[in-house]
Nucleic acid binder design. Structure first.
Ligand SMILES: [Mn+2]
Ligand SMILES: [Mn+2]
Ligand SMILES: [Zn+2]
Ligand SMILES: [Zn+2]
Lengths: 123, 123
DNA sequence: ATAGTAAATAGTAATCATTCCTATTATTAT
DNA sequence: ATAATAATAGGAATGATTACTATTTACTAT
């Protein structure tokens, strides 16, 4: 895989963003630096970066987001502001339970907790 | 909301299917009974049934599925055959942890365990 | 440094799932 | 049975993503 300014910029933008951005948001950011970059280039490179294991794709309902954090982790989804917050849980117990009860070989666990975040606390 | 043959048929098909069917699969099934039903009718009714709380929408990666089981539950996703299997876990512990550590008010928890199901057991 | 090559891009067209639109049909209250 | 109007069929529109292709760019060997 050959170097390209576009891919490097996309990589940097995703890497310094904690908000699990969408392809379109990333596209808008890249355009500030490379005004004639095309949306197809953003999609193609996001897919390649995922294939290389540099980033993860996250399906937030029907919205596709990207995550620089490729370590297994979970998310809190706020229904008020839409934010997706990282959180880390241990899932070994669940993996062993499904192995015993369903003979299911678990590779990974994804957990999403839906609710309202601290920004909207009642006074 | 007025009765319609189409909605009733869609409701019955979803209710007797455990495989978390897609809109298109449901459409094909309904066409066996009402050959000139339209795909828009299927989508419109699935949305209405969800709004009435009769069914749930499930986002399986980028695939949208429907579930007659509206009680909170989790899923095992088999990467070999694509099956989505129901499983029920208690999540109270997680809800209290995020409340304490993040002041996050949890309403519901969705958990997906990815791996291979018993159908593909090594001999 | 120069030239050859193949990868990557920009711009645009195509695809796919879903939603929207509207003339017609079906259901329900009277 | 009739009137009112909710629901449908069929097709157009939308939005996100992918595919196509002529041109540009990065790397390699001279
Ligand atoms: Mn994350
Ligand atoms: Mn289910
Ligand atoms: Zn929030
Ligand atoms: Zn399987």
């Amino acid at each position: 895989m050959r170097y390209s300014q576009q891919r490097q910029l996309i990589r940097e933008i995703v890497t310094r963003t904690n908000s699990h951005p969408t392809a379109d948001w990333i596209f808008k950011q890249t355009k500030k630096i490379i005004p004639n970059i095309s949306l197809g280039t953003v999609y193609r490179n996001l897919k390649q970066l995922e294939e290389k294991g540099e980033i993860d794709t996250i399906y937030d309902g029907n919205i596709v987001r990207y995550d620089w954090n490729v370590e297994s982790h979970d998310h809190l989804k706020c229904t008020e502001c839409g934010d997706l917050i990282d959180i880390h849980f241990k899932h070994d117990k669940f993996k062993s339970i499904v192995k015993r009860k369903f003979k299911f070989d678990a590779n990974s666990v994804e957990m999403k907790i839906i609710g309202t975040c601290s920004k909207h606390a009642k006074k």
